[in-house]
Design a binder for these strands. Structure first.
Lengths: 133, 133, 133, 133
DNA sequence: GTGGTCTAGACCACT
DNA sequence: GTGGTCTAGACCACA
């Protein structure tokens, strides 16, 4: 599934959260898919079960997963969710930050734009079907 | 100068680092400008001096500031710095991540592009003079 | 009959208990009505039979149902039950809690009262016939 | 501050969550008040620090507290928050449930109304000042 | 001092 | 089997 980097400055549970999010966002995991059980993932990653559970719970809080005690943990479907304005503006803030950094490193605004377009180009295989905006 | 948000998840020293970086990148602080002393900033932000100290040290380490004993802390000039490829690709990675997240939240690629263009528009006052790329 | 929400934090058997209680209280199920067998309900809800079993047993224990071996499970009649003072004061406690919460969320006492009246209004179709108080 | 009931079916951390919420809602704890540190409360309640932390974190998720690592945990101010519609309708659901139960226990709608009015009366000392609705 | 993370290992309720 | 809670005790970064 993925690997944990113990040397990273990110905490283990945070790495798990990010990795699972990515699997969901890239479509490797789809709505209603069952995730490995806490104990299973604990073994394959050689990480304490509590740590896995913490990650899963965090993902549940963030709306990516839901849990049925005794059955397992599943990918939540998020269609129809009201778009989270707070989240959006947070992402915009991060984008601004990145723009600023690139600018500081010597890139002109035009160059930054072309970099971004390039990145979008790479994703042109993604399907806009069902997109709300 | 700027404000600290205690409620943020970011640690205080990290907020200071980010804020100073931002001031430098946006041109509010220019090369050779003198920063407030540790004690001064400590008072204006009502933050422990050790915390300010740590932030300044981190900024020094990252090349944004330099210190002259007995005189104070100053903004370093960065012109002529070799473009840090590692940093660039890290930023690109973060941009990709943001794209993925917006896409996941229901935005089409076109919409994402227009969001980014909007953000760039807001910075159109920035001067490309002296940009290397 | 009703639906189970796997995403709910409530355990499945608890949802069944609550739903059956509701059906009884709203008069959809009346004294001596026969409930679906464990196997039947298990199929229609696609839920493990053990889970249904546990829910029925709980409802029996709480006095809502009774079982006749070989015949099935039935709704118990509750007329003439001595009013359970302990239960009443427990419900009052919960009401207090809800009042507190609404108040905390910014509602005035008057507004809270009108919310409650509204909820009662929705139930004005209920029949007070036979009520002891 | 409060006591934990080990015999309760509520988990310890949940009891802490509920108790702290109540302290906040009743005004015993006010915005920006500092809560006992994790270790402190751990000692006074003779409960493991991890359990306290879990409770505090839960309260943070729910918006009642905020945390500054190295400084402590504080009561968040919630004024100006957009009223959480989801929360409101959840509370309404609970109120309906209580109404239903009282009805089932033999109370007429009128009696239920008078019970609720009585409960509100007890809180008539509360001040509506600053209430949004 | 503060909160945050992590481990090892136990016990419980639910499916 | 599943997730959920709890303990005891360790180590880290931040203020």
């Amino acid at each position: 599934m993925f690997q944990i980097d113990l040397k990273s400055r990110k905490s283990i549970y945070e790495q798990i959260v990010d990795n699972v999010k990515e699997l969901i966002m890239t479509g490797m995991l789809n709505a209603e898919d069952r995730l490995p059980s806490v104990r299973e993932l604990s073994k394959t990653l050689t990480v304490n079960p509590n740590t896995i559970q913490k990650a899963y719970r965090e993902l549940e809080y963030q709306g990516y997963l839901y849990t049925v005690a005794g059955l397992g943990t599943f990918v939540a479907s998020h269609t129809g969710l009201p778009v989270d304005d707070k989240k959006i503006s947070e992402i915009k803030g991060r984008l601004q930050e990145n723009i600023r950094e690139l600018f500081y490193l010597g890139y002109s605004l035009n160059k930054i734009k072309s970099i971004f377009d390039e990145l979008l180009e790479e994703r042109s295989d993604w399907n806009d079907k069902g997109k709300l905006y």
